[in-house]
Simulated assay, not measured.
Amino acid sequence: MKIIKRALAAVALGVVALVGAVAPSSALPTGFYSVPYSDNLYYNQQNTGWQQVTYSQWQQAGFPAPRKAPTDFVKYPWSPTIYSVTYFDGGTWLWTNLSLQQWQRAGSPAPRNAGWVQGSYFYQWQTSNELFVQAPDGTHHKLTYPEWQAAGSPSPAFHNNQGFQKLSWWDGVAKMTNVSSGSGSTVTFNAWQQFGFPTPQAVSRFPGDTFCKYPGSATIHYNGLTAYGTLTYSQYAAAGFPAVTSC
Rank of each mutant, 00 (worst) to 15 (best):
M1Q: 07
M1G: 10
M1E: 10
K2A: 10
R6G: 12
A9E: 10
A10M: 13
L13E: 11
G14K: 11
V15L: 12
V15Y: 11
V16K: 10
A23F: 09
A23Q: 14
P24M: 01
P24W: 01
P29E: 13
T30I: 15
S34T: 13
S34W: 06
V35H: 08
P36T: 14
N40V: 07
L41G: 13
L41H: 13
Y43E: 15
Q45P: 15
Q46A: 14
Q51H: 08
Q52E: 13
S56A: 15
Q57V: 08
W58E: 15
Q59W: 12
Q60P: 13
Q60E: 14
A61W: 09
K68E: 12
P70A: 03
S79F: 14
S79C: 11
I82T: 12
I82K: 07
Y83F: 09
V85T: 04
T86L: 07
Y87G: 04
D89T: 06
T96A: 08
N97W: 15
Q104N: 08
R105H: 07
A106K: 05
S108P: 08
A110T: 10
A110K: 08
P111G: 11
P111L: 14
A114G: 05
G115H: 01
V117A: 05
G119Y: 05
F122R: 02
F122T: 04
W125F: 02
W125S: 00
F132V: 01
V133S: 05
K142Q: 03
T144N: 03
Y145F: 14
P146N: 04
E147Q: 06
A150S: 01
S153G: 01
P154Y: 06
P154V: 13
S155V: 14
P156W: 06
H159E: 15
W170Q: 14
A174Q: 05
A174M: 06
G184H: 00
V187N: 02
T188Q: 00
T188P: 00
F189L: 10
Q194I: 03
F195M: 15
F197A: 04
A202K: 09
P207Y: 01
G208T: 00
C212F: 01
K213G: 09
P215R: 05
S217H: 12
S217N: 14
T219D: 07
I220Y: 05
Y222L: 01
G224D: 01
Y228T: 11
G229M: 03
L231M: 02
L231C: 03
T232S: 02
Y233S: 10
Y233T: 11
Q235N: 12
Y236F: 15
A238P: 03
F241I: 05
